[in-house]
């Protein structure tokens, strides 16, 4: 299932890059892949693969500037970091997937007429609190709240290079990257601390840099340590439960059907949380470009 989402994401990005920017294409009079911000050595296809993988795995290395991707690329890289389960970096992806599985079991498990159990252990209030807190609440708090503050004061705080829908993507990407332990940048923000020389020379971006450093710190800490603590508590509480024997009345979690259900739960609980942001960011941008306004 994760592989399917991953492949789907790569294809989405690649199509976006391959078709190129219609505005640019119109100028060139031919269809060409979007190569802005990419190393020509890698080309559009490898860059798409790398961008999808690096955001999916919380790697953080980049071989092209995500800022310059077509909206499709922005959509995919953002989604990767919102969900945090497409491969997932260094163990956390699996952990998040487990938390989603737990919630899927909790909601749908009732439908087999038993109180839900996962890996032979009953899911009770404590587990639901930890799991839902972990994946449903922390991530939006870490991404959306600072993002909203930054965008409420775009001039004072954000320092966005491309205003409009794309700017929104820039800001949200920054926080998503921080909260999802990714570390890659969409770039295009005035977020770097200027060198002392530059300040001496009268550079004035200190205020935005300070805001970015502090707010991403918050996202980073919240996005990393709260879920890790919650996961450890969850594992601890699950391990102490007496296992329930498997019968034909037990919900099986190793079937294709259940995988599909989990995908549905991830879609509704995870993806829909961020859907308005994606709609206002990359999706709106895509329509904008499509209509030739960009």
């Amino acid at each position: 299932m994760v592989l399917a989402i991953y492949v789907g994401f790569i294809i989405t990005t690649a199509i976006g890059e391959y078709q190129g920017n219609p505005a640019v294409n119109a100028l060139l009079g031919e269809q060409a892949p979007n190569l802005e911000g990419k190393e020509v050595r890698f080309g559009w296809a490898q860059s798409a693969l790398f961008a999808t993988t690096t955001t999916g795995t919380m790697c953080g290395a980049v071989n092209s500037l995500h800022d310059s991707f077509m909206p499709n690329g922005g959509f995919v890289t953002l989604s990767n970091m919102f969900l945090q389960i497409v491969w997932g970096g260094q163990g956390t992806g699996t952990a998040y997937l487990f938390a989603y599985l737990l919630l899927a079991v909790f909601v749908t498990g009732l439908m087999v007429g038993r109180t839900p159990e996962f890996l032979g252990r009953k899911i009770e209030k404590r587990e639901v609190v930890l799991a839902s807190f972990l994946i449903l609440l922390v991530h939006p708090i870490a991404i959306l709240i600072p993002g909203a503050i930054a965008l409420a004061f775009p001039d004072q705080l954000a320092g966005i290079s491309n205003p409009g829908f794309h700017g929104l993507s820039q800001v949200i990407y920054e926080y998503a990257s921080a909260a999802a332990n990714n570390g890659s940048g969409f770039e295009g923000l005035g977020d770097s601390q200027p060198s002392p020389l530059a300040i001496a020379g009268g550079a004035s971006s200190t205020a935005t840099a300070l805001w970015w450093n502090l707010s991403t710190c918050f996202s980073l800490l919240a996005g990393r340590y709260i879920p890790i603590t919650a996961l450890l508590l969850l594992a601890e509480s699950m391990s102490r439960k007496q296992p329930v024997p498997l019968t034909s009345g037990t919900l099986r979690t190793d079937t294709g059907l259940f995988t599909g259900i989990t995908a549905g739960i991830i879609l509704v609980m995870g993806a829909l949380t961020f859907f308005p942001i994606l709609a206002l960011g990359p999706i709106a941008e895509a329509f904008q470009i499509a209509r030739g306004l960009g």
Binding site: L103, L110, K125, S132, T273, P276
Partner: peptide, 23 residues
């Protein structure tokens, strides 16, 4: 347990909707 989940979902959407406004 179900009430907890529903409450968290409600909170999540509250955050989402609240942040949609400045965005």
């Amino acid at each position: 347990a179900l009430t907890v989940l529903l409450t968290v979902l409600t909170l999540v959407f509250l955050i989402v909707v609240a942040t949609v406004s400045p965005l």
